[in-house]
């Protein structure tokens, strides 16, 4: 007898009211409804249960559900606000809102800090930064010697770790990121301003 993953037979979850999500985020109600079109597409790509699983998230990002990428994992975990292994529609909208061009820079700085604080200790430690640089080298075609990696991490700490205690705290990160706006470039997705044009079919399904 064949077995089918139980993930495929869950009832579709109730999604949060677009008006409430619009109130709590940078999006308008129409934009939230357009995002629902995108959410449906991603959350039905493999398991069809109305929730985004990590494999579906990776498939949407890389066209490959098994690709290993430290930062895709980190982003998924940060989107998964309830920490239950899946992203529901409310989590999707609230998290994407950080990437909206009109979201305050402070929110983007705070999100980037959580992204880099791998172990959630409240500080970015030297070892974490070293680990992230090694991970990106492994996952890309870049090659740097161990000596060069050490030098880059040392230099970064010299610039960012203002009290020289071997870790970057949220205030130090804020100062460093404010002086280096290039670090936050990936924290803004211009597409989000045009989301209703990318998914015009939201009008057909609009409840508002």
């Amino acid at each position: 007898m064949g077995c089918v993953s139980s993930k495929q037979f869950n009832r579709a979850p109730q999604h949060e009211d677009p008006a409430i999500l619009a109130k709590e985020t940078t999006f308008s109600v129409s934009e939230v409804e357009a995002l629902f079109e995108l959410f449906k597409k991603i959350s039905h790509s493999i398991f069809r249960d109305g929730l985004i699983h990590k494999e579906e998230f990776q498939l949407a990002l890389f066209r490959n559900s098994n690709k290993k990428n430290l930062f895709a994992n980190r982003i998924f975990d940060l989107f998964d606000l309830k920490r239950n292994g899946v992203i529901d529609f409310g989590e999707f909208v609230r998290s994407l809102s950080i990437f909206h061009p009109e979201t305050p820079l402070g929110d983007k700085i705070a999100f980037a800090f959580r992204l880099y604080d791998l172990r959630g200790t409240g500080c970015i430690e030297r070892e974490e930064l070293h680990e992230m640089v090694l991970a990106l080298l492994n996952e890309s075609d870049l090659f740097l010697s161990e000596e060069a990696v050490e030098k880059i991490v040392d230099q970064t700490f010299k610039q960012a770790d203002l009290n020289d205690d071997g870790k970057i705290d949220p205030d130090e990160w804020k100062t460093f990121a404010s002086k280096n706006p290039a670090l936050l470039k990936n924290m803004t997705l211009p597409y989000l301003k045009d989301i209703t044009m990318v998914f015009p079919s939201f009008i057909l399904n609009s409840e508002v």
Partner: peptide, 24 residues
């Protein structure tokens, strides 16, 4: 890459573009 700070290197090379979500 040695001229970049580690965070710049990560944000430029992490192979992650959330914009791909919209092309999915």
């Amino acid at each position: 890459p040695e001229a970049l700070n580690a965070f710049e290197l990560i944000s430029m090379s992490a192979g992650l573009n959330l914009g791909n979500l919209f092309d999915s």
